[in-house]
Design a protein around this nucleic acid. Structure first.
Lengths: 334, 334
DNA sequence: GCCAAAGTTGGTAGCGCTGCCAAAAAAAAT
DNA sequence: ATTTTTTTTGGCAGCGCTACCAACTTTGGC
């Protein structure tokens, strides 16, 4: 049983022109507030628009003119707050500049990403924003051929197609390791989520390990949970890791969600933090600031990343890589 | 200094037809896999598409044919995980049905919502999804006149324009109050965020208060933090509320973020939960399941809401209101 | 009052694609 | 071999709008 909701019946610009007793061009100019027209013409047009309930058709407008004013986001996930944060930052700037955000979710699958990028390009967006630099050859080829701006966000360790805005995940991993070492921790473990898929977490982890190794205190063990990061898997992951190595003195988590989970495990089991076990995260989520002990972590400018990427796109800035840096939050858990 | 990245140079269907030595119609049919064409024609077309790197122009396609296969989301916020959850649910279904999601963020401002709905309608979307039923007259008028499907989500207490998918916030408020009363709490307070803007939280609160009042144990006091909900404001809010009423035995929070903040306050101050103070939230976030004591809350089917709303839209189901219900999670904090 | 300059206005050719139709080719039936 | 049926094909008119241009009206200077 289908309900017939036909899309038709939409008022067109020609009808408005007719009703206002002016030419189509005049209506178009008035509505876009471009070119010149008399006060009187404007009044008549506005009256007709109001009366008929005219809503311009941007599909037609875009086809006839230049840009779509559409910015396409192809993000790995919406569960990980990082991406809504970037979208939020970008969305404000885009709206202020009369652009529209379109998005789709790859679920961290490069093949899906490729398909979704293709689908997005069909809308002839002004720009495409993606997470990181790891894309399939096909994706890169399409992006380069598309002629639209490309912004790769949340990473700067790699080769950008066009614009890149973010921070160094490798530097973050290194900084985390250095911090833990400086504090005197030597028996360090890692709890993370699927590193194959989240390549930025993988970069942090790699740099973290290298730094530990070169200091002479290599990583003791790691527990990698399949699937997306979550508070729950952080808690379970830490439990499993500690079951194997009760004598760890610090654990680095792939991000704050996981770290908070680990922290909860400690609270629940009466493990003293940080004296018995130190906890270190990544992202600097708000929640980490108000846990009974503030979480030690690295705060990343996610919203700012979205904003800046959007600004570069709307101002049609030249290709560039912007490293927004990050801030190490000492907190009280490490 | 501008960088010249012209959008032009895009390969058109006509060029593909030329290159493949067939007519435009044939290319179009092959690409949409519709109508009839020979195996040979298909091969030649595909070869040309591949060789030229042709990406169809959906702007033109949409203008020429019927639907845009675009679904517009106008959400209050992206910080509140509820909305990314709905988007996530919907996005999966939409992608599977070759639809595209477009969104914008109102920041809980009905005037902004109106402007954004207008902007969205300009893309002639298949459907518009909004949160709740509280919209300006202008918004409602445009939506009704648009001829596109409208889905109002996350609430069922109100009059739907077309489709509605969600759960009863009033019933949730009532159920929360009944639960606390059943457990014997009588000196109950409330900590919430801006109720003027988040009308669904307002409905929960109103029903909560009514239920308490009619049981003879009216709400003792409330602390309403301006701004969006967050773990931090939950923690601060509880602190302020307790400063006024140290003898409360339970606190109802406008949602889980706030409740977790309150819980952290208790942990930090050594307030025994629930013996000294009970805590009750709303939403059923994952994090609440793995806190040292599982959070008592109401779990809402947010992802499912997005999915179902998207399904109803893509199947062009008749107007209807679907109450997905909610689940009271007893937890251990109340 | 006349002419140049400035300000307005409407007509029309596309933008790239799909839908329709008639023509052509291939297959089946006679 | 011829006719009928089926399949395949290309041409072309829009979809609703904007860009461009030419025509028109008003204004101002002298």
């Amino acid at each position: 049983m289908e309900f017939d909701f036909k899309q038709q019946g939409a008022v067109t610009l020609a009808e408005v022109a007719e009703a206002a007793g002016v030419g189509e061009s005049t209506v178009s100019r008035v509505l876009r507030n471009e070119g010149s027209f008399s006060r009187k013409a404007r009044e008549r047009v506005m009256e007709a628009v109001e009366r008929l309930g005219y809503v311009p058709n941007r599909i037609a407008g875009t086809l006839a003119s230049a840009g779509s004013r559409l910015v396409a986001f192809v993000v790995p996930s919406l569960s990980n707050i990082v991406f809504p944060d970037v979208l939020r930052g970008a969305s404000g700037v885009l709206e202020a500049n009369r652009h529209q955000a379109v998005f789709s979710v790859t679920d961290y699958d490069p093949q899906r990403e490729e398909a979704l990028v293709a689908a997005m390009l069909a809308w002839r967006p002004t720009a495409v924003m993606l997470a990181g630099f790891e894309h399939t050859e096909g994706t890169l080829k399409m992006l380069r051929a598309s002629g639209c701006r490309v912004a790769e966000v949340l990473d700067v360790d790699g080769t950008a197609v066009d614009l890149a805005v973010g921070f160094s995940n490798r530097a973050a991993g290194r900084a985390s390791a250095e911090f833990l070492l400086k504090r005197g921790y030597r028996r360090i473990g890692y709890v993370g989520h699927d590193l194959e898929r989240d390549t930025r977490a993988g970069k942090r982890f790699a740099a973290f390990c290298e730094t530990l190794a070169s200091s002479g205190s290599p990583l003791i063990d790691r527990e990698v949970c399949s699937g997306a990061s979550s508070v729950e898997s952080g808690r379970l992951g830490l439990e499993r890791l500690l079951a194997r190595h009760a004598d760890l003195d610090a654990v680095y988590f792939s991000n704050d969600d996981m770290a908070i989970g680990g922290y909860f495990h400690c609270l629940a089991r009466g493990i003293a933090v940080p004296s018995q076990l130190a906890i270190f995260g990544y992202n600097g989520l708000d929640i980490g600031r108000v846990t009974p002990q503030p979480l030690s972590t690295i705060r990343t400018p996610r919203v700012r990343t979205g904003q800046l990427a959007a600004e570069l796109v709307v101002t049609n800035a030249p290709p560039q890589v912007v490293d927004l840096g990050f801030e190490l939050v000492e907190g009280a858990t490490a």
